[in-house]
Write a protein that binds this DNA or RNA. Structure first.
Length: 480
RNA sequence: GCCCCCAUCGUCUAGUGGCCUAGGACGCCGCCCUUUCAAGGCGGUAACGGGGAUUCGAACUCCCCUGGGGGCACCA
């Protein structure tokens, strides 16, 4: 088998979202599994819409995900001469022709056709222009684009790894522009030329591009390129409204997942499961395991919806499987952003260890540990937490008893165990768990949900814990 | 309007004629465990869009319908 060469070729007209990332991932997985190469090609032929910041963003996101590419980045904007030469070749061979219709004219006639009940698209007006007519229009200074002449009859067919045979009648495909009137090449041309020049063996992309394949293949053939790549069109990722993912339809920048505390490995794991599944029941997998199990033949046919709840679950599973030092390193940036200089690394590590078994995102871990790194004077209880605390029967007695115990007890998780204290207050186990404990959580950790209380108290320290209980009691007094 | 594609629990999916009274996972519900919550354990809820045809036998094959999606740009 010839060496596998694939590419991920986004247009730099926006941030990379889950759809693009999934396409990049499948290409990368396929290349990795086949021992082939994975290239990154930026399709920036539409100069007006392409932006350097998006090119940078795509690269940094791919890097964060760990989907590194081989060789230098290919920028189509640096290869315009090559595409234009190919267009000249097509012009010379009669596969393309000069079109003097302006964009507006084409649109007007297309709209009129629709109103008249005919199909939209270019009507082929400049198809049969004679040499003299063409020359006249040229000297008249009419803007000129180049159109590819699609066959009048017959059909186009290609074999798709996931779709099977894909065919379309040429009579339903209008002539299309390959060079704009501003002399810049269009997607179809650049795509066909580059896939050939780069020796791309497999084209793996979204199903929204399936119809364009016939046109690219026609250009490729007209250019005299031997053979064609293997195509694999992936089912689309859809938004909540079941529409193709776009900014309007729930697309979220991949960078947001990073900021919200998702692990790249977990995101990749989940993305791999959207439109593909291994031939066994595994779901939580490392990237290496996914590479080993991946097969284009197992890609599904129907669109998939991105489920954040399942992502949260998978992320939690990955967090739980991380070695503590790695998890600490992953949470550290979030911790530094939140607690700044107050961060105590030793305490932080202990807190992360406590959070590891319960958290589903890195942000959650940082949030749960936050109470350990807040100045006692600035410590506040959330509104929810305060409401809960205030509503607890005998809360003042509970806090007082806890403080009394903590003043003299041995400073260990066993020593600070407040259960005997609550029992001595006459609280049943249920009452202690359901009512008293939440109040203590709120007073000490500032929120009703968080790290295990007794371990937290030990980490907070005797002085700090007592001050927090005292603050809660004082606030309680003024509230009454 | 025309072309193309898709169709199993709420969601992601397994399933390629009998192993399916349809399996797994997330979610949801219940119970257990328990230092609240979470995590964990156990159990439960829930689907083959409809109609024909082929066959001894259809989730799996074919046709029609319905529904959904994609494309028809001087975007990619």
């Amino acid at each position: 088998m010839a060496d596998v060469r694939v590419r991920f070729s986004p247009a730099p007209t926006g941030f990379l979202h889950v759809g693009g990332a999934r396409t990049a991932l499948f290409n990368w997985l396929f290349a990795r599994g086949a021992g082939g190469e994975f290239f990154l090609r930026i399709e920036d032929t539409d100069v007006a819409r392409s932006r350097q910041e998006w090119i940078d963003g795509i690269q940094s996101t791919l890097t964060w995900l760990g989907l590194g590419w081989d060789g230098p980045l290919v920028l189509q904007s640096t290869r315009f001469d090559r595409y234009l030469a190919a267009a000249d070749q097509l012009l010379a061979s009669g596969h393309a022709y000069e079109c003097f219709c302006t964009e507006e004219e084409v649109k007007e006639r297309s709209d009129a056709a629709v109103r008249a009940g005919r199909p939209p698209g270019y009507d082929g007006r400049c198809r049969a222009l004679g040499d003299d007519e063409r020359a006249a229009l040229r000297t008249a200074g009419k803007p000129r684009s180049v159109r590819f002449r699609t066959p009048d009859e017959g059909s186009s067919t290609f074999a798709d790894v996931v779709r099977g045979e894909v065919a379309v009648e040429w009579s339903t495909v209008r002539d299309f522009v390959i060079v704009r009137s501003n002399h810049t090449p269009v997607f179809f041309l650049a795509n066909a030329v580059d896939d050939a020049d780069m020796g791309i063996t497999h084209v793996i992309r979204g199903e929204d591009l399936i119809d364009s394949t016939h046109r690219v293949l026609a250009i490729r053939a007209a250019l005299g390129v031997e053979g064609r790549p293997v195509y694999a069109h992936l089912p689309l990722l859809v938004g909540e409204d079941r529409g193709k993912l776009s900014k309007r339809h729930g697309a979220v920048a991949l960078e947001d997942f990073r900021e919200r505390g998702y692990l790249a490995a977990a995101l990749l794991n989940y993305l791999a499961l959207l439109g593909w599944s291994p031939d066994d029941d595994r779901e939580v997998m490392t990237l290496d395991e996914v590479v080993a199990a991946f097969a284009l033949e197992r890609v599904t046919h129907s669109p998939a919806f991105f489920d954040y709840q399942k992502l949260d679950w998978i992320n939690g599973e990955h967090i739980r499987r991380l070695d503590l030092p790695d998890l600490v390193a992953a949470v550290l940036p979030f911790a530094r952003a939140r607690y700044g200089a107050r961060l105590d690394v030793a305490v932080f590590e202990a807190a992360v260890a406590l959070a590891q078994e319960r958290a589903s995102t890195l942000v959650q871990i940082a949030d749960q540990a936050e109470f350990l790194f807040v100045d006692h004077e600035e410590f506040t209880i959330t509104d929810d937490g305060w409401a809960r605390l205030v509503a607890t029967d005998g809360v003042d007695a509970i806090l007082t008893a806890a403080a009394t115990h903590l003043q003299g007890c041995e400073w260990s998780a066993e020593g600070v165990d407040l259960r005997p204290v609550l029992a001595a207050l006459g609280l049943s186990k249920t009452a202690a768990n359901k009512r008293a404990m939440p109040a203590l959580y709120c007073a000490i950790e500032g929120r009703p949900h968080g790290l295990p209380l007794f371990d937290s108290i030990v980490l907070l320290g005797r002085d700090g814990t007592l001050r927090r209980i005292e603050r809660a009691r004082a606030r309680l007094a003024t509230t009454r």
